[in-house]
Every structure is written in structure tokens, then in C-alpha cells.
Nucleic acid binder design. Sequence first.
DNA 1: CTTGTCTATGTTATCGATACCATCAATTCA
DNA 2: TGAATTGATGGTATCGATAACATAGACAAG
Lengths: 330, 330
Amino acid sequence: MADVARHAGVSAMSVSRALKDPDLVSPAARQRIAAAIDELGYVLDLAAGSLSSKRTGFVAAIIPSLNNSNFSDTARGITDELEGTGLQLLLGSNDYSIEREEELVEAMLRRRPEGIIVTSGSHTKRTRRMLEAAGIPVVETWDVPDAPIDQIVGFSNAEAMALLVRTLAAKGYHKFGYIGGTTERDTRGSQRREGFVSALSRMGLPSGRLISFGVPPISMEQGGQAVVEMLTHWPDTEVVICVSDLSAFGAIMECQRRGMKVPGDIAIAGFGNYEIAECCHPRITSVDVDCYNIGRQAARQLHISIKGEESEEVPSLTLTQYRVIERESA
Amino acid sequence: MADVARHAGVSAMSVSRALKDPDLVSPAARQRIAAAIDELGYVLDLAAGSLSSKRTGFVAAIIPSLNNSNFSDTARGITDELEGTGLQLLLGSNDYSIEREEELVEAMLRRRPEGIIVTSGSHTKRTRRMLEAAGIPVVETWDVPDAPIDQIVGFSNAEAMALLVRTLAAKGYHKFGYIGGTTERDTRGSQRREGFVSALSRMGLPSGRLISFGVPPISMEQGGQAVVEMLTHWPDTEVVICVSDLSAFGAIMECQRRGMKVPGDIAIAGFGNYEIAECCHPRITSVDVDCYNIGRQAARQLHISIKGEESEEVPSLTLTQYRVIERESA
DNA sequence: CTTGTCTATGTTATCGATACCATCAATTCA
DNA sequence: TGAATTGATGGTATCGATAACATAGACAAG
């Protein structure tokens, strides 16, 4: 920056101003500075800038998996909302592992984000402590934890699943099956399973047939294998609910491969309203959970908290919408 | 850090050493320092560290889209390869826009990455200039550009597509259709289309029927719409190749919805060997392109270049493998 | 003509860690 | 036994920007 300043015949301070608040610099100087920057190929060094200004200009977010359109939609929501705020997104994925999450949180906090968005669910003790001690706003998303760290933007996965069960029961289904495990790896999946079980019992329906298969998140392929297991154990199952549309899709395809009609011989529903649910044949009955807006809202709250204006208060709990989308598969 | 040092009764320098090279500090001091860090909840500030050490400890990567398992597999490959090297990944996605790419590159370079991985294809002039001037290793992936910036890890999308055409021609197909546009947004898609056209002409087959539909990348849904258009214009088409498995899947489902048999009435093939290709019914004939290893190899080369040891030379062009996977759909 | 205000600009101290060099004690070797 | 080596530790300058304050000139108001 000193070089640029010399070239333009001004002080370094003016260069700094020209870059971050051009109005403070006279047009003539501004132009000379721009020319010098261009000639020297100068690129501002944010590390130095943030050391002195105490503002790093980015927020961190951690999602379970990149390769899952639900979560990448949330990431897109965050990015879009941050556009124009002067904040950038540092994105990490933890492959559904809370140990990996701990490493990521530490690595990110070392770079001093101004806020952080994590996917709700269980965290290691150390992760919690680090987040609480960081002194920055924290938003947990995608679920409603019992003991929140700071802010929450999410919905009850259990209730959303219960709504799906009620909707299907109203269509006359009686014998329910469920595909998807219980595990710390995928707390949202576990909550859905709990919601499934308790909804059936509340409604006085025969208790569900539960299949866990493979390590969550369950893939398409595993959805197919699981439905085979389901049909072997309980051939009279009328409707199978899967923890996500991806496994539901795998299950449907496997049934078709075996010559079974969906929903004629067996009905299958999913969760998440992925693109595939709308597009496959038969189209999959699912629960839409507004992933994109979870991201937008989380980022909006974070941004407000960071600006720290008294006038704007941020709710500690924001519930997002979900709804059942009935299609042909169930 | 000064606080920690005081607590532990050592100098700041020893704390710094205890964190980055513990062997240089006596076990007793190390333990006192660890205790002090824990008690104070101290987290190292990398911004300050990298200002003084000139090492930021991260590399940047830009992919076209998060929500595409091909590219997120590449990102996973990068992350895995970087594990244990002391380098972190800063990931960005540009939604297939080269303007957005320019912004991202600038924002990332301001944070001084030690290397950068971009998805090959067209870049804005300014992006090129910035990358060339950055003085760090640059790896372009996923394609083989005519005028590389620095290193390349990729394959010829045109040749890969030509291989698919030849494979299908060998199975007796004659009248080929292609779904997927030409555009700067998705240069890899454009290359595939060129490969398709030139392969047909080289083999003396009737020239292909080309459909562009929507803005690339083409979604599942748009694949379905495009195949309808194809069948309206050229009802005698025998086999349709889609720019990716996602549009191929949409096309297959749409055909089934209309009561057509795939591959009985029409054959359909895709590209990319996404999970869905293996899992849907019928399974989709596709081209596997080893996305994960593109990421690993790119990160490996970057890491070697960054270490800068004389003994290890990095190839400026690394071609990755691809192969046609024949399944039921074509 | 003086005082006050505003704009454009420069000077200095500082952010928090680390590179580099210096020091000192303990150990090894000739 | 003295010199050389090794290991642990500390002091100081420094990385590159920016906050905070200072200054100088232009202009308006009284």
C-alpha cells in the first residue's frame, strides 16, 4: 500500500480511504490512486486490515454435507442474504460428524468470524464451550434444540414428521413402516423417527415397523436395500415413510425393479422435497421445509446482531414453515 | 497471548511455540501453558499470525455449484487431500457465472490464499490477470483449456462425449439426439456438445438433433421438457444423450410418464455418473469422470507447489480418467 | 476581519502474533 | 578442564493495514 501511495503521490492513509470509503478522497486523488493500483497490480491485504480494524468481514457456516441439496440450498440462502452487506461466507461441511464439527469450529474461530451459523443438533462439549466463549452471535439451524447456544432458526423435525403421518393416515393408510436410523450423526433424522413413532401411538395406530440401514445419511441405494428388508419382515406394510426423499427414491426404484407398483402395491413417502421428488415417476409425497429461507433468515439475524443497532432486536427462536406436499407416491 | 503467557509464567514467544511446535518447549512449561489457555478460553488469532509469518494456511477453491454432486465430490477430494497438511480449504461457488467468479477470486485473493483451484473454462480478463499476478500456484480443473493459466487437472469433455457416442453407435444406434446448450456459463457442457457433433460427423452418421432448453445447468425438470421437444420435432430419434445424468433422469421419467418405454421406445444416456444413474429404473448409461480424484490430484499438486521443494516437480497437465458405464437405459 | 465549520489529507500508534537474534544453563567432547 | 554444542527461553522488530487524532486550506457567517 505504501508503494501505491508513493506512485499516486499521496499517503497510505488516503489509499486505504480510497478503497473502503471513496467519498472521503478527492476525485483527482482517487483517480491517481486507482491508476497506481492498476499499474502495480496491488491487491488489498485483509489480514492486516482486520488486525487493525477488528473486523474480519466474514461469517462462518457449517453444514452436515455439501452434497445434499437441502443443505446447499441453505448455504445459498445465506450467501444471497449476505450479498451487499460487506460480509462474506466461509463455508465448511462436517460430513455429519460432531468431531469433525469441533475441528471446523476451532479452525474457523481462529480466523475470527463475526458470526457463525451451525446446523443444530448435538455438539461436543468443547464445541459448545468454544461457541459460547467466542463472543459472537451464533445461530443454530434446521432444528429446535432443548438447550440452545444463542439463536435458533429452524423447525421441529418431529412435528413435521407427525404431520406427514397424520396426512397419510387421513388417506386411509393403517400399517406404517419407517426407514431411517437413530444416531447422534443425524439428529434431525432421529427426531423425525421419534415424531413418527409418537404420532402413531397418539393416533392409536399399530406401532410402526422400523428399519435402520447403513450409516446415516442414508443413500438412495440404501433406501432400496432397506425397503427390501421391510418387505421381507413385514410384507403387509401399506405405506413406508423414509427419512429423506433420497432414500424414498431408492426405495421406489427398487420396488419398480421388482415389479411392484408404487403406490398400488405399496405407498412410499419421503421428506425434504428435493428436486427429485417432483421429477421422478411416480412423484414423491414429501414434506417441504423451506431450506433456502432457513439460510436467509439465519443470515439476516446474524447480520442484524453484528450491526448491533439497538433499535433492531433479534428473536431468539424463529420457527420456519413446513408443509406436506401430496403427490402420487403415497 | 500475552495474558496466557503471564498466567503460565512464560513469555509470549513460548506460548506461540507451544501452539505451533510443542517440541521446542519443555514439558513443564507446555503443561502450564495448556492450563492457562484452557482457563482463559484463549483462541489463537490467525490473522495476526499470518501477517507476521506470511503464511495464511489456506487454499481457495471455486466450483460452479455446491448443489451438484460432481462438483461437491471434487470439493470433498480437495478437503481429504488437504487433511493433515496444515492447509484449510476456503470454498466458494459462483453459480456458473464468470462475473461472480471474478468477485469471488478478488475477495479470496485479498485474504492471501497460498494456492487456488478454479474450475476451468472461460474467465473474465480481469480474473485471469488477478490469478496470474497473484504469485501463487493456480490449478484449473475439470477441463483442458487452450490457454492455461498455470496447472491443469482435468480431461477433455469433448473426447469423453465422443467416446460415449462411439460406444452407443457400436450398439447399433443410428439417429442421435442431444440435449444441452452451448454457453459461456457452462463451458464443460458446451465442449460435450461439440464432442457430440464432431463425433457423429467423423463417423459418417446423420447429424444429430440438438435441443437447448433453459439456462445451463439444465435441471431434471428441464431435461423432461427438452425430451418432449425432441420427440415432437424428431419422433424417430433412437437415442438421446443428455449433458448430464440429471437431465437424462428427467427425460427418462417424463418418457415413462407418457407411457414410453426406455430403452424400448427410446434410449437415453447421460454424463457424470451421478448416484442417481446407478439407482434409478432403468439405470442410466453414463460417463464416469472421477470427480473425487480431480479434487485430490488438484490439491496434491497445489500442496507440492506450496511446499516448494526442488525435488518434487509438478506436471503442468494432468489428465484424469473417464470411462463409459453401460447400463439399461441405452 | 475574525471565528467557526467543513473537507481533504497526513502522522503516529496500534492490532496480535512470529522471525530473528541473543542469552544462559546443561551437557558433550577433545 | 576449557571449548563447543545443544536445548530452553526471552527481547525486539516487524508484518500491512487502519483508528484516532492533527493539520491545513477553503469557505460561510457574524
